[in-house]
């Protein structure tokens, strides 16, 4: 059993890639910097704030989704539906106070998503199709419970989530704190190590005695909590919650994780990478917006970036295997 762990650990140890990946990332940053520098109004305090603000809600959710990808379950397509549920629970329960309402929303998101994780981890169900079904079911349930009308805040406490201490939105602080907490959880705890091992090689992890079901359920639970937190911010920002909030949220969140460089097949990546991915995508969207491109072009570029980064990571991984 020890050898299985040692082997998986050794595989992970090879993650230090000299060459291709850092080079690609550097090229990406330089291209983006050139475009940013040559764009009017980019380097203004207001614009940097706008970028961070637009990165924050997607970033918070993407940090959570990173754990789903890391544990080897690809992605969840129920991100948007879970966030909408989180927003609805939060706004509807605000009369209990800000913290209890937020806690309830987080608990709901974590529970619903952890259940999906338990099924994926325990029975090997296809995570993408399972989360499509779960998201659809969740949308149906939330729109039934809300009678299809916009859920209004039951008290005024939500404005705290819209405040801007020291001129920066609360969501940005939450995103950064969450990134650090999740990074520590991944790199410094036994649970984090288990997540990486399960994602890298499920069979080896099982042979090593790791509880796959519990690890996967917890990873999904973290994701669900993050979806709900993002949803609460979204609901607070819009002063109401309905299925309309969902928009392209699911894909923005997935794009942030994958563009950040977390391996789609699991086992390799980190919350900090996702943070970089979220900020990069927000910056690109901002540059495109300032240059007068509309949402279509932004979405197109996001998709192309996702394919490009997935391809680059795969090719880099193959080069590494050839070297060793």
């Amino acid at each position: 059993m020890r050898t299985a762990v040692a082997r998986v650990e050794a595989m992970r140890g090879r993650a230090a890639v000299p060459g291709l990946l850092p080079a690609l990332a550097a090229v990406g940053v330089i291209v983006l910097a050139v475009f940013a520098l040559t764009t009017d109004r980019f380097f203004t305090v207001d614009n940097v704030k706008a970028i961070l603000n637009s990165a924050s809600i997607v970033g918070i959710m993407a940090l959570g989704l990173t754990f789903v990808t890391l544990v080897g379950s690809l992605v969840s397509l129920a991100v948007g539906a879970t966030a909408v549920m989180g927003a609805m629970v939060f706004l509807d329960q605000l009369h209990l106070g800000l913290v209890p309402a937020l806690a309830l929303a987080i608990a709901a998101g974590a529970a619903v998503t952890a259940l999906q994780g338990a099924i994926v981890g325990g029975w090997g169900a296809n995570p993408v199709i399972l989360t499509i079904g779960a998201g659809f079911l969740l949308s149906g349930v939330t729109s039934k419970l809300s009678d299809g009308v916009i859920v209004q805040p039951s008290a005024g406490g939500y404005t705290a989530l819209n405040s801007t201490p020291l001129g920066v939105p609360v969501g940005v602080y939450v995103m950064i704190v969450l990134a650090v907490v999740l990074q520590v959880l991944l790199r410094r705890t036994v649970f984090g190590r288990h997540v990486l091992l399960v994602g890298e090689n499920r069979d080896a992890a099982r042979a090593a005695g790791i509880r796959i079901t519990r690890t996967t359920a917890l990873a999904f639970g973290i994701a669900g909590a993050a979806f709900a937190i993002g949803g609460a911010f979204l609901g607070a920002f819009n002063r109401g919650a309905s299925a309309q909030l969902e928009g392209t949220l699911t894909f923005d969140v997935i794009a942030a994780v994958l563009v950040g460089g977390t391996l789609i097949s699991g086992g390799r990546g980190s919350p900090l990478r996702t943070l970089a991915g979220a900020v990069a995508i927000a910056t690109i969207s901002d540059v495109l917006l300032l240059r007068g491109f509309e949402t279509g072009a932004q979405t197109l570029l996001k998709g192309v970036l996702v394919v490009g980064v997935v391809l680059a990571l795969h090719l880099a991984g193959r080069g590494r295997e050839a070297e060793s």
């Binding site: 979405t299 996001k302 998709g303």
Partner: peptide, 9 residues
């Protein structure tokens, strides 16, 4: 998944 997002764009 990537091409889906790109195609919508």
């Amino acid at each position: 998944l990537g091409t889906y997002i790109a195609l919508l764009g």
